[in-house]
Write a protein that binds this DNA or RNA. Structure first.
Length: 222
DNA sequence: ATCCGGATCGCCT
DNA sequence: GGCGATCCGGATG
């Protein structure tokens, strides 16, 4: 009853949090390297965690799709903070999205976590996402994963290196398993492609494996 | 498979 | 006043 998957989950659950230096780099590099890392949230109900399989880079004030394009405001303040803290924002009047702040203090950029593959606390996630028709729907989108892990405004500006919210090192994803595409839901600044995802992973928010969007969306790194 | 509207509200123009 | 870094359910091909 001790499957390889269970052992892997256990090892990842005990891995060290990624250090601040991991985030003090170009936002594109952080977005790519966050694939495979483990996002974990602890709360009164227990621990939930998942492997990051999809990310997007938001580059700063000159990136029209980045919230920092509006400049330094109450909302965007965390983006100007220390690399390695969380930027958690409220959208569409009902959802939260979580980012990891990158580069350096005063450089307002971040990586949006768009999808997870559940690793721990799946039962808890199911209770928090009663409408999900399958486990894939638990965390295959930025708003969904925040509901499943119970991430919200309380976590805004919180360090990602200690509980209750943290990102641990995980199994690295090789280049031949990584694909890029334009960012989702972004009308402005479609180029360059700033979305990274694990190819063929079923938990990616928009599976590029079907339909006409396939050729457009799928662009492997190697 | 794809398109569309509704929910719901903080934020910036 | 209008619009989102979204999600869901229903209609349409």
């Amino acid at each position: 009853m001790r499957s390889a998957a269970a052992r892997t989950a256990r090892r990842l659950a005990e891995a060290e949090p990624l250090p601040a230096s991991f985030y003090s780099r170009a936002t594109e590099d952080v977005a790519r390297d966050l694939l495979g890392a483990v996002l974990e949230c602890r709360g009164p109900q227990g621990v939930t965690a998942g492997r990051i399989v999809e990310t997007e880079a938001y580059l700063g004030e000159d990136d029209l799709a980045c919230h920092a394009a509006a400049g330094r405001t109450g909302r965007t303040e965390p983006l100007y903070g220390a690399p390695g803290i969380a930027y958690v924002y409220f959208v569409y009047g009902m959802y939260w999205c979580v980012n990891a702040v990158t580069r350096e203090v005063g450089q307002p950029s971040a990586v949006l976590i768009r999808a997870l593959e559940p690793l721990a606390g799946v039962e808890l996630m199911r209770r928090r996402r009663p409408g999900a028709k399958s486990d894939v729907q638990l965390t295959n989108g930025p708003g969904k994963l925040c509901l499943a892990l119970d991430i919200d405004g309380r976590h805004n500006r919180h360090s990602l290196q200690r509980p209750p919210l943290l990102i641990r090192a995980g199994e690295p994803v090789p280049d031949n398993r990584v694909a890029r595409s334009p960012r989702i839901g972004v009308a402005k600044a479609v180029e360059p492609p700033l979305r990274w995802f694990v190819e063929d992973n079923p938990f990616v928010s928009r599976a590029p494996g079907h339909g006409a969007s396939r050729l457009r969306a799928r662009r492997r790194l190697t």
